[in-house]
């Protein structure tokens, strides 16, 4: 275990920003947080529990190397995040096997006319109360938002989540999920068009 503070001879604290690593306290301090973090990103409680456990065990293995440059919670979250990205990758490559060309997003059931790119009349966005940001919109909306996100194809949801939840860079997302930049933008676009349509349909 590392000491968080260094002391000078006259006992003044030197602000070295070294953080402690105290595995005995991990469950009490971080288990719920990490669990919530995982559940919101993979929407699978059981898998999320497993990931929390794996995170702690992996962290224990690495505890000796913990250098205290970041806080324990940041460090643990980073380990968990990598495990979540592994899941995304596995899920989307599973998709790769089942379908021939999953990344090349299909044009069928498109929202736009093929010849001129107009909105198809039945898909034209309409105002439904989501034109102005309202942070107090409430749980019911959150619930619908989550459900609509879950309807997106796995790869799209992975891209969308990494971008909007974790604000990862485009480069990171493309390399972690192995999509080309061109496909990345197609996915970002189509995920939003679909998500918006789902919200309009269900939030009235």
């Amino acid at each position: 275990m590392l000491e968080s503070r260094m002391h000078t001879e006259n006992n003044q604290q030197v602000d070295t920003k070294v953080h402690t690593c105290d595995p005995q306290q991990w469950v009490a301090k971080y288990a719920d947080y990490l669990y919530s973090y995982a559940v919101t990103r993979i929407n699978d409680g059981e898998l999320a529990r497993d990931l929390v456990q794996e995170t702690f065990l992996a962290a224990l293995e690495k505890a000796a190397k913990f250098e205290g440059r970041s806080s324990e919670s940041t460090w643990l979250t980073a380990i968990l995040k990598n495990k979540i990205i592994d899941i995304y990758r596995k899920k989307s490559s599973g998709l790769l096997k089942r379908q021939e060309v999953p990344v090349e997003v299909s044009e069928s059931d498109d929202f736009f006319e093929v010849d001129d790119g107009h909105w198809k009349v039945q898909h034209q966005p309409q105002a439904f109360g989501l034109e102005v940001y309202n942070p107090l919109i409430g749980k019911e909306f959150d619930h619908i938002l989550k459900q609509c996100m879950q309807k997106l194809p796995v790869l799209w949801l992975s891209v969308f989540t990494m971008k909007h939840m974790d604000e990862e860079t485009t480069e990171t997302i493309c390399s972690e999920l192995r999509v080309t930049p061109a496909n990345y933008w197609v996915i970002i676009h189509r995920a939003k068009v679909n998500l918006r349509a789902c919200l309009q349909k269900n939030w009235i």
Binding site: V39, F128, H164
Partner: peptide, 27 residues
């Protein structure tokens, strides 16, 4: 309209997964 909604959706998604809502789930 799409643009307005799209911007709001991004904010809502961001809110959804950040404090304090994150603390609601417990093992």
């Amino acid at each position: 309209t799409f643009e307005q909604q799209s911007i709001v959706i991004n904010k809502m998604v961001h809110d959804l997964f950040h404090e304090p809502k994150l603390n609601e789930l417990k093992l």
